[in-house]
């Protein structure tokens, strides 16, 4: 793997930045190069949010992602906005509880995952982000599946330590689900 650019997009409250941070810490622990860049501004208050995560074996140029290798679209506006920016041969993960349409392109690999529904069934309705992240780790080897909890511990603040297990469960569920 040379450089992988991942764009995670959704609306505020879906944990888009959190999922990106988890990947960033996972990459850090694997001694990879990485950068994490959130969108910032008024859209943080309820509108769309996205974050750019670049993971690489070499020093990273720009942290800004214009053409992602991987897109995780957590809602329809995000898919609409970023579908055509994905590089040919890239991968799109679609949150299919909220996004009812299919990806229009045929030069990318697409995974549809009803992550919100899966998360609800787990009793963790807020963790669709981590279910999607689990699926990402399964399908794209950007970071390894080992020692997930070490990276989680870095992003889940000690105040919310009780949520470690459920986060881990959400990732593992996303990792093992077929689709």
């Amino acid at each position: 793997m040379a450089v992988t650019q991942i764009l995670i997009a959704g609306f505020g409250g879906q944990g888009v930045l959190f999922a990106g941070k988890f990947l960033a810490y996972k990459a850090l622990m694997e001694e990879k190069q990485l950068s994490w860049l959130p969108s910032y501004g008024p859209e943080m208050r309820g509108g769309t949010a996205n974050c750019s995560v670049t993971i690489s074996d070499e020093p990273i140029g720009s942290p800004i992602i214009t053409n992602p290798d991987i897109l995780i679209a957590m809602n329809l506006p995000s898919l609409e906005k970023f579908e055509n920016t994905v590089v040919p041969g890239g991968v799109i993960f679609v949150e299919s509880t909220l996004i009812e349409r299919k990806v229009k392109r045929d030069d990318v690999t697409v995974y549809y995952l009803p992550a919100t529904k899966i998360a609800q069934e787990l009793g963790a309705p807020g963790l669709a982000n981590m279910v999607m992240t689990g699926k990402l780790i399964r399908e794209c080897p950007v970071v390894s599946h080992d020692h997930l909890e070490d990276a989680l511990r870095k992003v889940v603040s000690s105040r919310h330590a009780d949520l470690l297990d459920i986060n881990l469960k959400a990732i593992e569920t996303g990792y093992s689900v077929n689709g």
Partner: peptide
């Protein structure tokens, strides 16, 4: 600039 301020890197 705003990007560097917001970017997280090792």
């Amino acid at each position: 600039d705003g990007t560097l301020g917001q970017t997280m890197e090792p």
